[in-house]
Design a binder for these strands. Structure first.
Lengths: 209, 209
DNA sequence: TAGTGGTCTAGACCACAGC
DNA sequence: CTGTGGTCTAGACCACTAG
C-alpha cells in the first residue's frame, strides 16, 4: 500500500517470510493468499509471488434497496403499484431472459420519496418462485420481498443513461439512470428488473489496484 | 445455494462437520470462513454459525479502462487531449477534494472509438504523483498511465445521469452517463476524474445474497 | 528435476459470549 | 462456566511448472 513495492517485484518466498516474521508457513500462506484474493499479488507455483500489475479497476458496490435509499435521504417511502399481471413466459420481453418459464409475474410500480424516486418494471419467474403468486405487491415492494425470501447466487447488472419515461412524470428532457439486473440461481433466471431513476444516485464503492 | 437452508438456520458446529466430512477442524474452519467472507453465513463465538439474512445486495464490478472498452467493442482507440494545465490546488474545483495540494495537473481529453466515446476531465495531485508532471498526456491517456504506475488503496465512485456536454459533440438531448471517481492512498487524494459517456455502458458484475 | 505454492492434519491455546 | 469460533504451529504430502 505504501507503493514501496512496484508491480512485477518479487515477493519473498513463503519459507523466507516464515523466518523473517518467525511464524509458521501456514500463517504466511494465509496472509499471502489473502493478498492474492484481494488482487495485490499474483502467485504461481514454482514462479513465486509477485506484486500484481493492476490491469483493471475492481470495486465492490453495495446496492441498497430503494426503500432504504429513500429513507436514507430523509424522505418517507411510498409504493404505488400500477399493474400486476400473470402472463405466459413467452410473452415476457426477450431482454428478461425468461423464455423458458411457463408463468411469469409482470409488475410495474413507482417508488415515491420526496417526489417520484424511481419507476420499476419487473418480471418474476413463477416456476422458480411460486410463492410470489400469493404476495400482495400493492403493499410490499417486489425488490424488498425478493431480498427477504429468495436467495440468489448470480447477478448481472447493466447501468445506462436513458431519456425520461413518461410514467416518471418528470420533464421529458430529464436524463435518467437505467439500472437493469438479472438474478439467477443455479442457471435459472429468478427475476429481471429495470429501474429508472431521474437524475441518478450514488453508488458508494471501495476497491484497490 | 440450493436454497435448502434458509436465512437464520443453524449450521452445524465445526467439530460436527469435522466428523461428518472426516477432515480436520482447520479445514472446516477455512471453508466456513470463506462462506462468511462471501456473506453466505454469519459466525459468532459461542452462538455458532447461521445462514445469513441478506440485508443488501453486494456486487463486485470490474471497470476496464476506456481504451480497453473501446477495443472490446471492436473499434480503434484514439485519444484527443484538449488541454493540460498546471494549476494551484486551490484553483481545482471543490468536488475534486484537492484543496490541500500545492500543485495540480488539470487535463481535459476526449476518447474516440467509433465516434466520440467519452469526455474526461481529470485533476491529478502533483504532490502525491510528482512524476505525472513529466508525462506527455497528449500520447498516453491519464487513466491508463495512472493505472500502470500509481498504486492506490481506496476508491469512491459516483454514477449519475446527466445532460450531454457540448464538448461531446452529440445532440444536446442525448442522455449521458457521468462516472466520477476519487482515488486515494493513505488518506491523500491522488486523482479525481469525471467521465461522461453518451448513452452509457455495461458494468458486468457478480454477487450473491 | 527441483523450487515453489496448495492443502491437509492433529493438536494447542485463547477470546468471546451465552447460559 | 462452557461451548463456540479465531488463530497458530510443526510437519507432511502433493501439484505444478520454470529452468
Amino acid at each position: 500500500m505504501s507503493g514501496a513495492w512496484h508491480p512485477g517485484d518479487r515477493v519473498p518466498a513463503e519459507h523466507e517470510l516464515m523466518v523473517e516474521f518467525d511464524c509458521s508457513r501456514m500463517t504466511v500462506n494465509r496472509a499471502l493468499s489473502a493478498l492474492a484474493d484481494a488482487g495485490f499479488v499474483e502467485r504461481r507455483r514454482r514462479a513465486g509471488t509477485v506484486v500484481a500489475r493492476p490491469r483493471r479497476q475492481m470495486a465492490a458496490i453495495e446496492i441498497p434497496d430503494i426503500e432504504a435509499q429513500v429513507e436514507a435521504a430523509g424522505a418517507r417511502y411510498r409504493l404505488e403499484t400500477l399493474s400486476v399481471d400473470r402472463i405466459d413466459g413467452a410473452a415476457a420481453p426477450a431482454v428478461a431472459r425468461l423464455e423458458g418459464a411457463a408463468e411469469v409475474l409482470a409488475i410495474v410500480c413507482r417508488h415515491h420519496g420526496d417526489g417520484v424516486f424511481a419507476l420499476e418494471e419487473r418480471w418474476i419467474n413463477l416456476d422458480a418462485v411460486p410463492r410470489a403468486a400469493g404476495v400482495d405487491f400493492g403493499r410490499v415492494a417486489p425488490g424488498r420481498w425478493l431480498l427477504d425470501y429468495v436467495p440468489w447466487t448470480e447477478g448481472d447488472y447493466r447501468i445506462a443513461a436513458v431519456a425520461a419515461d413518461p410514467r416518471l412524470t418528470v420533464p421529458a428532457d430529464t436524463p435518467c439512470l437505467s439500472f437493469e439486473r438479472w438474478t439467477s440461481r443455479g442457471g435459472q433466471t429468478i427475476t429481471y428488473v429495470r429501474q429508472v431513476f431521474p437524475g441518478g444516485f450514488a453508488l458508494t464503492a471501495g476497491g484497490s489496484g
